[in-house]
Amino acid sequence: MNPDAASTDRPTVAFDNQLVDAFKTIPELLSRDEKLIGRGRLLDVECLLGPTVQPFHVTICGGRILDMTPAPVLMRSWRFAYRATPAAYRAYWQAVPTPGWHDLLALTKRGEATLEGDLHPFMSHLQYFKDLLALPRRSGLVSAP
């Protein structure tokens, strides 16, 4: 984690600790999924992912997450961002999500998530990112909304 992240004067925003903790488990869950890593074998990207209240700068190299640092980080660039409301992630991570909350693009369609920047890495690896961001479903750590 980047120590600078904690030293910014960003205004305090109330956020969902359980949700952020669940998001932090993604690198570990990914490291145990060789199939998913394999599907991202040609993917190298810096992106911004996570809940709108606490996104993370994520460095992916060869399908593996090399670094995940809470935003903001001073002058750190990203190629694309996928940010969703805490309610959206909470719903998306249920074992059986409710209709309309079960897919990353269902969430953008309903206005609960935003997709910004250069979308090529995201679109060329769409199933990878859908499955990557669904990994906390497996742990069942997040309670129902």
Partner: peptide, 29 residues
């Protein structure tokens, strides 16, 4: 809910993308 221009371009695998897009339309259970 997406731009269809992504579906047929040489720098994105059309088959993989088409499948990934519609995967979200399938019931998860």
């Amino acid at each position: 809910w997406y731009d269809t221009a992504w579906l047929n371009r040489p720098d994105v695998h059309g088959g993989e993308l088409c499948a990934a897009l519609v995967s979200g339309l399938i019931s998860p259970n």
